[in-house]
Structure formats: structure tokens, C-alpha cells
Design a protein around this nucleic acid. Structure first.
Length: 327
DNA sequence: AACTCGGGGAC
DNA sequence: GTCCCAGAGTT
């Protein structure tokens, strides 16, 4: 819209040749297997590349094919996802894998429209898989692309406009590379604060050149104080499972919660901070009141820590057990 | 369009 | 400490 055809083509070439030279060497860039691309894209939803790299490798070691994933237990998938957050992603991955195996003989749908029908695959992820794995000329819009486009045109694009603008810019010969190049630019050069405009391959097309302010929303941050009980018996530790119908992290395991008021008679082992969505928790980990206080251990399950990798722990439970050097 | 859903890494 | 990330699903 804002650029002539000629300028758009110049921009594509500049961006793609920059990407050829500067693309980070990431594990999912060594494959075009749609299953692996899918796993990487879902893992990357609202999750930084640096966090995903190791988890991606581990997940594929545990679930190397879509058929293995389809016949796995949900708890095993959640365990592999433990600490990554947004656990619905893991549940959706598994249920979508079952659908693909049952209805498509295990072959991932090859168009964005068909991919879009699977659980956990929205407009972004469908376009990403289709363009990267199947060369379909469909543009993505994620947080990076949105920011790059906003700076390029010096105005916030609203709703559908983001998608149409991205689609107009897309390189139809190399859609997968172009999409990744836009995101790579946003992640490494056109970053939210202090963009590195002098390193930008498309700065001569940019109306902003770094002046654009990115003002994020500011959701109200709450703070809460909470205490968990750490009680061991041999190589086991007492854990409880969150309710199946709990809105937050259902069916996942954590330490038993305990009353903060009784802390005067229970030793605080250590404290730490933990943020979940909009709540910042001050977490106290306390020991049992006495060696045989029934109220401390009359509910829960003794779990052998050698099997912890099979158990879907919440990220906080994992953090506590690591801090306590139990895992 | 506005919410909710986790967690961590960079600053 | 704050910000925000290769978003999806619900309302």
C-alpha cells in the first residue's frame, strides 16, 4: 500500500540477503519436517528462542514422531512441557496429533487453511508451518512482524490491516525464509527498545528509524505471599496434584500448600520470588512442624524423585525442588 | 476488542 | 524491579 511494486521488491531482496548472512543457527532451521516445524512454532508461542532451544531437542527426543506423540499419555506430554508455561499448548499438541494420525494417516495437513482447523494452531502458526514446511505463500504476523511493520510505516496497523500489509510485502518465491527473516529482524535488530537501526538492512525504506515508541500495556501486577511444605521421606517427597477442573495448570503436581500463619512454628527453609501471569508471588518453603505432625502429611502422594522427569510438575514446584537440590 | 493463560531472560 | 516474548481460545 505505502510502497510501489519496485520498492517492495527491493526491500524483499535486501531483507532476504541480510537473512542469508545473519540468520541464527537454530535447531528447527535444519529441517523441513512439518511435524518438527509444528513443535517449534507451538513452543515458540509467547516463549523466547533462547528458552526453547534445549526444550525443543528434548521434546523431540521423547516424542520423535507424530505417532509417538499421538499415543502418549497426557501426563507425559505435560511432564515434557513442565516449566514452559501455557500448558494448554501441550494438551492441544497431543490432541491434534491424535486427530492427524486418525484422520490423515499421520500426515500433517499441508495448507494453512487445513492446519488452522487443528487445536492450538491459530492464524499465525498455520501460516508459519505452511510457509516454512510447504512453501505456501502466506504471510505471518507475530509480535515481531507487527513492530517491524509499524516502524516501517510509522503508524500502528489495526487488526486485519496487519495481515494484509504483511501479505503484500511477502516474497512469493521464498515465503518461509521471508517470514522468518521478518521475525529475525524484529528479534535481533528492530527490537522493542533501542533498535539497532544502523545494522538494519531495510532502514532506507523505514519511515521511523528508531523514533517509534513501543508502548506496551501495563496489566495490574498483584503480589501474594504463599507457603509450601517441603517434607521428605528417604528419596521421596510429598506432592499433591492440582484439581482436574482447576482453571490454572489442572492435573499438574506441586508441593502441598501450608498456612503462612503457622510459620512461627515451622522453619522457613528458604524463600524465593515467582511470577505467574499478573501475580508476583513471594514463596516461602517451610519444613514440617514436628517430625510426625499428621496434619502436615495426611494428604498428598509420596513421589520418588528419581521419577520426577515423568511427572508434570508446575514450574514453581520444579524451581523449589531444584533450589532444595532434590533434583 | 479485551481477557486469561506461565515462565524466564534481558535490561 | 519492569518489559515482553515466532499466540490461541474464549467471551
Amino acid at each position: 500500500m505505502a510502497f510501489s511494486n519496485k520498492k517492495r521488491q527491493e526491500l524483499r531482496q535486501a531483507l532476504l540477503s541480510w537473512y542469508n548472512e545473519n540468520a541464527r543457527d537454530l535447531p528447527w532451521r535444519h529441517t523441513r519436517d512439518p511435524y518438527r516445524i509444528w513443535i517449534s512454532e507451538v513452543m515458540l508461542q509467547q516463549t523466547r528462542v533462547a528458552v526453547v532451544i534445549d526444550r525443543y531437542r528434548q521434546f523431540l527426543e521423547r516424542f520423535p514422531t507424530i505417532r509417538v506423540l499421538a499415543r502418549s499419555r497426557e501426563s507425559a506430554v505435560l511432564a515434557a512441557w513442565s516449566g514452559l508455561g501455557y500448558y494448554r499448548r501441550a494438551r492441544n499438541l497431543r490432541s491434534a496429533a491424535k486427530v492427524v494420525v486418525r484422520d490423515h494417516k499421520g500426515a500433517m495437513p499441508s495448507s494453512a487453511d487445513a492446519l488452522r482447523k487443528l487445536a492450538g494452531i491459530g492464524r499465525y502458526t498455520a501460516a508459519a508451518i505452511a510457509s516454512i514446511a510447504f512453501d505456501e505463500p502466506v504471510a505471518v504476523v507475530d509480535g515481531n512482524v507487527e513492530r517491524v511493520l509499524a516502524r516501517l510505516h510509522c503508524r500502528q496497523l489495526a487488526g486485519e490491516q496487519r495481515w494484509s500489509t504483511s501479505q503484500e510485502l511477502l516474497d512469493l518465491e521464498r515465503p518461509g525464509d521471508f517470514n522468518q527473516a521478518m521475525m529475525e529482524l524484529g528479534a535481533t535488530v528492530c527490537i522493542p527498545a533501542n533498535p539497532r537501526c544502523s545494522d538494519c538492512p531495510i532502514r532506507k525504506f523505514c519511515r521511523t528509524r528508531g523514533r517509534g515508541k513501543v508502548h506496551g500495556r501495563k496489566p495490574r501486577q498483584h503480589r501474594r505471599e504463599i507457603a509450601y511444605l517441603l517434607v521428605r521421606r528417604g528419596k521421596s517427597v510429598l506432592l499433591v496434584r492440582r484439581a482436574a477442573d482447576h482453571g490454572l495448570m489442572p492435573n499438574m503436581w506441586e508441593l502441598p500448600e501450608t498456612q503462612l500463619r503457622k510459620n512461627n512454628v515451622k522453619p522457613i527453609i528458604f524463600s524465593l520470588s515467582h511470577s505467574i501471569t499478573t501475580t508476583n508471588y513471594k514463596v516461602h518453603v517451610v519444613g514440617p512442624r514436628t517430625r510426625s505432625a499428621r496434619s502436615d502429611r495426611d494428604s498428598g502422594t509420596w513421589v520418588n524423585m528419581a521419577r520426577v522427569s515423568d511427572i508434570p510438575l508446575t514450574g514453581l514446584a520444579r524451581k523449589i525442588l531444584r533450589r532444595a537440590e532434590i533434583i
